[in-house]
Computed example of a mutant assay.
Amino acid sequence: MSVTTMTLRIPDELAPSIRAAASGAGLSVNAYVVRAARRAATLDAAKLLAAQGLGDNLAGEGDTL
Rank of each mutant, 00 (worst) to 15 (best):
V33N: 13
N30S: 12
R38L: 10
G55L: 14
T42H: 13
N30E: 08
A21F: 00
P16L: 04
A36F: 02
T4G: 00
A25V: 05
E13V: 09
E13C: 02
V33H: 13
D44V: 04
R39G: 12
L14K: 15
A31D: 13
T4V: 13
A25E: 08
L49V: 04
P16S: 08
V3R: 10
R39M: 09
G55I: 02
A40P: 08
A20W: 04
V3M: 09
Y32P: 00
M6H: 12
D56W: 07
A50C: 01
S2V: 11
L58C: 05
R19I: 11
A15M: 11
G55W: 04
V3K: 08
G26V: 05
A22R: 09
D56A: 10
E61F: 10
G24E: 11
A15P: 01
G26W: 00
R9I: 06
A51Q: 13
S23G: 11
A50Q: 12
S28T: 10
G26E: 03
A15D: 03
S23P: 01
R35N: 14
A31W: 06
A31G: 02
G53L: 04
A45I: 05
G62C: 01
Q52W: 02
L65W: 04
S2L: 12
T7S: 09
K47V: 10
I10V: 15
L65T: 06
V33L: 15
A25R: 03
R39T: 11
L58F: 02
T7W: 00
V34M: 06
A25P: 00
D44A: 15
G62R: 01
M1V: 07
I18H: 12
Q52T: 10
A36L: 14
R38C: 04
G24C: 05
I18D: 07
